[in-house]
Design a protein around this nucleic acid. Structure first.
Lengths: 345, 345
DNA sequence: ATGAAAGCGCTAACAC
DNA sequence: GTGTTAGCGCTTTCAT
């Protein structure tokens, strides 16, 4: 055998202890062991003790597949992110939400199955979800075009991150923040700082976060009797923010205040501003959404609205698990937001 | 029922089609269907066609749990990241490697199980891995203290990302880049640009990437007859880079060239440099490792060595799958690196 | 090349 | 409260 080659070779084949072996060691039946493992209330303390001791001694770990097969439950939930991998990794929002979901799940026996599924694979993903591979699903950043997920909640419990675009009928619930109010507050903040020529880089028109933040911006401007024509759209990414900023500047109209619907877009826009010799906040005020790396490390750091991303993740997981357990859960959970004032306005 | 509450309610219980139903529809036995599903070579073309048609018609999807239970294989591999969640999400390296692994796996029937397992949970993780939950494992960024994984390869096929610190004996293989040579090249680059007072922010002393890059740096300095005392250590994170830079500056010795062993540390260091009124590359040259967001968006963008992160991920997955299939695999796979020259030296 | 039959390790009625 | 008995849906010898 070549020295540079590693062979699968002989692996120690110490057979995993089975439930049956635990039963024998504890002097009880398999059912009792199973009951202990699933903390059934109707087992005598002595039996529980004996079984636990045997489990400990043998280092028994239940076979997941067998458990799933017999119980017809999977002990796993899906977190579906209808974006491509590149976007997934670039957006700190996803990282935080996943962290929250994982955090909650780690205190349970549930496992997380992360599905990064571009829209074109939505149908395949839906099939996977309805094929009994998971007990429930969390769907993030739901596009209106993702028709595939619309009726999913008729098959399994589903929780959406953000208001779903399609009415999903009874059965689906969602966790969200008040995007309208938050965006309104940001625009109002600009106005309070004396800005009168306001522009916005809005989010996608097919995502509720995009729509709602634009509505909030318009609301603030209407309240102040200001015109709201300076709107360009992006897809929440830095590159799209830069492009939108370019289009905004090309219009040739005066701009002294900008609300970018995501800090990533703000970051892209700031680069363009710099190219054009425009300085923040001297020449114009900039406010945005999300208190992530982009908002914090912009020059200057941006006034923004922070949503409790990790908490949103935790809450979604909690709601989903309760729904899986058959409990009634709130159709809508609104999480609080926080305004972070910095020196960019 | 309260309007604000959603009930798990009655879900459509259309039973998933089973292999048996496919068999009936195709007019063959279950064994034959199973053979077709697993592309066994010994099935007549007619039978294959009939079965495939039935599968298509019924929308049959094999039940994973049953398959795993019967075949005693899991069709899933673990990607173990022995770091805490925060570090995991902050480091673009992980994102790229995962992307590569996922990419390769998506062309197979294997599923990825991502384990973000801080060192304190290493034992629990090891038990999970040896309990038959996965067919093989990829372990990234292996610390010397992670004793738990040392003998893992005796139980299941294992591929390490980067040279493992403990000799894992025959059975484990790894995929890596030539860290020594890359670091040497970076330091040499500084020297070639006339820098004579070189410092380095080295990586952790318990990771081979940290050790090797320091060795390379020392090699270049020795070659040039330069002293190599200006060393401070970090943990690859931006914050640790900033702290290390501070300690370096506090020494009061002249520094006109810096090699940071990760772009994240370089990024942290650049901030400190700016605080001190030091300008790059006017006052000192800075070179680093990894061509990620941090290297690219630094001011100025940094000369660095790019490792093919996504490719590393792909390759690790490929090697692991071959090992699982029982083939002999290379004990060491070295991936090529690329020097990216920018204006920071 | 195909089918029959025996499990894989566990849970879930059901009887005791 | 505990044990007995059937499977869960699939793979896999072993005949044929």
């Amino acid at each position: 055998m070549n020295a540079d080659v590693v062979s699968a070779g002989q692996r120690t084949n110490r057979p995993q202890p089975t439930l049956e072996m635990v039963a024998a060691a504890a002097g009880v039946s398999r059912s009792t062991v199973s009951r202990v493992v699933n903390d059934s209330p109707k087992v005598t303390p002595e039996a529980v003790a004996a079984v636990k001791a045997a489990i400990e001694k043998l280092g028994y770990v239940p076979n997941r597949a067998a458990r799933i097969l017999a119980s017809r439950r999977t002990f796993s939930v899906a977190l579906v992110i209808p974006e491509n991998t590149a976007k997934f990794f670039a957006d700190p929002y996803f990282a935080a939400v996943i962290q929250g979901v994982a955090m909650h799940l780690s205190s349970t026996e549930y496992t997380l199955s992360l599905l990064i599924a571009p829209e074109k694979d939505a149908e395949k993903t839906r099939r996977y979800l309805t094929a009994g591979n998971v007990d429930g699903a969390i769907i993030l950043s739901h596009h209106s075009d993702d028709h595939a997920y619309v009726l999913l909640s008729q098959s399994i419990p589903v929780v959406f991150g953000g208001r779903p675009m399609n009415q999903d009928g009874p059965g689906a619930s969602y966790v969200d923040v008040d995007n309208v109010e938050a965006a309104r507050a940001m625009a109002a903040h600009l106005i309070a700082h004396g800005r009168r020529h306001l522009a916005t880089i809005a989010g996608p028109r097919n995502m509720s976060a995009g729509i709602d933040r634009l509505v909030g911006w318009r609301l603030a401007l209407a309240d102040a009797g200001l015109g709201s024509e300076l709107i360009e759209f992006g897809d929440f990414s830095p590159a799209s923010g830069a492009e939108a900023m370019r289009r905004l500047l090309e219009r040739g109209e005066p701009i002294d205040g900008l609300f970018a619907a995501s800090a990533q877009m703000a970051s892209g826009a700031m680069g363009v501003l710099r190219e054009h010799g425009l300085e923040v906040p001297r020449d114009l005020g900039v406010v945005t959404f999300d208190d992530d790396y982009f908002a914090q490390s912009a020059q200057p750091p941006l006034t923004t609205v922070a949503q409790p991303t990790v908490e949103v993740g935790k809450r979604m997981a909690a709601v989903l698990l309760r729904a899986i357990a058959g409990e009634d859960v709130p159709a809508i959970t609104m999480m609080p937001i926080e305004i972070i004032e910095r020196d960019s306005a």
